[in-house]
Amino acid sequence: MAILRKDSVPETEAVSGYPEPWNLGRGFLSYRHITEAGGLTQFGAAVETLLPGKQSSQMHWEEHEDEFLYMLSGELTVVENGEETVIGPGDACCWKAGVPVAHCLRNHGDRPATYLIVGSRVPHNICHYPGLDLLATSEGFTHLDGTPYPTKGETE
C-alpha cells in the first residue's frame, strides 16, 4: 500500500504531444500523476490544473478507454460535440469507451481549475479527433489514412 500525502507527488508542467499543426505547446496545464507515484498499472489517475484561457486537449473520443473527471476547484467549460456546459466543484463527467462524444475542457475563467481525471490503460486504444486529420494509436499519431506523423526530429 502506498500513502501519498498532499503535495507529495511532484507537479509536472504538461507539454503537448500532438503533431503539428495540432500541437498545444506548453504551459496550458500541470498535473500530479497519482497512479504513477503509487505504482498502479490498470488505470491512470492524475490531479490536473488547467490554466485560465487554456484548453486541455484537442476534441477527442476514445475507442477502448473510459474517462472520468471530478471537479475539485474552479470552473470549467466542458465542450461535447460542440455543446458547452459549465461545471464546478463536486460535478463529474463520464465518457464511456466507444461512444463517439468528442470532448475537451476549456477554462474561460480568471483562475486555475483543478480536477481529478481517471482513465483506463488499454494498450490497443485508438483516440479519434473529429474534424482533424489525426488519430492516436498505440504506435503513435497517424493521419486518417493511417500514414504516421513524423516523430520529433523527422520531417514529413
Rank of each mutant, 00 (worst) to 15 (best):
A2L: 04
I3P: 01
L4P: 05
L4D: 06
S8K: 07
P10D: 12
T12Q: 13
Y18W: 09
Y18N: 11
P19D: 01
G27H: 09
L29R: 14
Y31E: 07
Y31D: 00
I34S: 06
T35S: 14
A37T: 13
L40G: 15
F43H: 14
F43R: 09
A46Q: 13
V47A: 01
E48F: 13
Q55M: 12
W61L: 09
D66P: 03
D66L: 01
M71P: 00
G74E: 03
E75N: 00
E75R: 07
V78W: 00
V79E: 15
E83F: 08
V86A: 12
G88L: 09
G90E: 13
D91N: 14
A92R: 10
C93V: 07
C93L: 12
C94K: 04
G98P: 06
G98R: 07
V101C: 14
V101Y: 11
A102S: 14
C104T: 13
D110M: 05
D110L: 06
R111C: 10
Y115M: 13
Y115W: 08
I117V: 11
V118P: 01
V118F: 02
G119F: 11
V122P: 00
P123Q: 06
H124S: 14
C127K: 11
H128R: 13
G131I: 10
D133R: 07
D133S: 05
L134M: 12
L134W: 05
L135I: 05
L135P: 02
E139M: 00
E139H: 00
T142H: 04
G146T: 04
G146C: 03
G146R: 02
T147M: 02
G153Y: 00
